[in-house]
Computed example of a mutant assay.
Amino acid sequence: MDADEHDPTGLDLASEIARAAVEAAEYGVQLPEPKPVRPVRRTPRVFDEQRSGAHPDERDPQLVGDVLDQIVRDRGWKKRINLSTVLRRWPDLVGEANAEHSRPVHYEKGLLVVECDTTAWAQAMRYAASQLVARLNDSLGEATVLRVDFRGPQAPSWKKGPRSVQGRGPRDTYG
């Protein structure tokens, strides 16, 4: 068969192979056994980098707000941020009149310290302390604020400064 005459179906080649096999069988010629086809062993592929699958996971792009929320939770800043947010709304929590005469000054381990203008305001606000604790825990999360301590104004200290004296000092000023 010439190179110009090509059978795309391959029937000519198949008939030639069949004829050769029949002739070999008639004359007792043994055709060589075909070599067994060895399956190709593939080594498992090891990826140095991890790749994302079909389902969302932490390696996929995330929204900035979700990432910041996760950082706040991981670092334990959630109570502090919630507390600062709520304390900025102090007038809404205690009322305008009470907010004019009091301000939160410190928070630690469930204790909120509130400083009042006078001892009378501190005493009046102590009566509403349980309601305030309930409102704060609604806003901040359960058991964030365990107790509120209302304090009146602090008397000046005469223990330090240019006019301080050693020992007990004069007793006629605030006694």
Rank of each mutant, 00 (worst) to 15 (best):
A21V: 11
H55K: 15
E26G: 04
Q166A: 15
N137S: 12
A20M: 05
L146Y: 14
G65I: 06
A3V: 01
M1K: 03
G175W: 08
R171K: 04
W77E: 13
E23P: 00
A20Q: 03
D57Y: 03
A99L: 07
L146H: 12
L87T: 02
D12C: 12
P170N: 14
D57I: 11
V64N: 00
W121S: 05
V86C: 07
Q62S: 06
L31Q: 11
Y127R: 12
A97R: 15
W90P: 02
Y27H: 10
G10L: 05
R80T: 15
G76C: 04
R42P: 02
A124M: 09
E49S: 12
T9E: 09
P104R: 03
S164V: 15
Q123M: 13
A14H: 04
D69E: 11
K78M: 12
P56V: 10
V113L: 10
M1N: 03
Q62I: 02
I17D: 01
Y27C: 06
D48R: 09
Q30P: 02
R75Y: 09
P8H: 10
G141C: 04
G141Y: 06
V94R: 03
G161H: 00
H55S: 14
E58L: 15
D92P: 00
A155Y: 01
D60F: 08
H101T: 00
R75Q: 13
T173H: 10
A14V: 09
S157T: 12
N82Y: 06
R80E: 15
Q131H: 11
P32Q: 02
I71D: 04
M125E: 09
T43P: 09
R103K: 08
R38Y: 07
E142Q: 14
P153M: 05
Q123G: 10
D48S: 10
D138Y: 08
A99G: 01
P156M: 07
N82C: 01
A21F: 08
F47D: 13
E108C: 05
D66P: 00
Y27Q: 15
D92G: 02
V67G: 02
R89C: 15
Q70K: 08
E142M: 11
A3Y: 06
V145Y: 00
K159M: 08
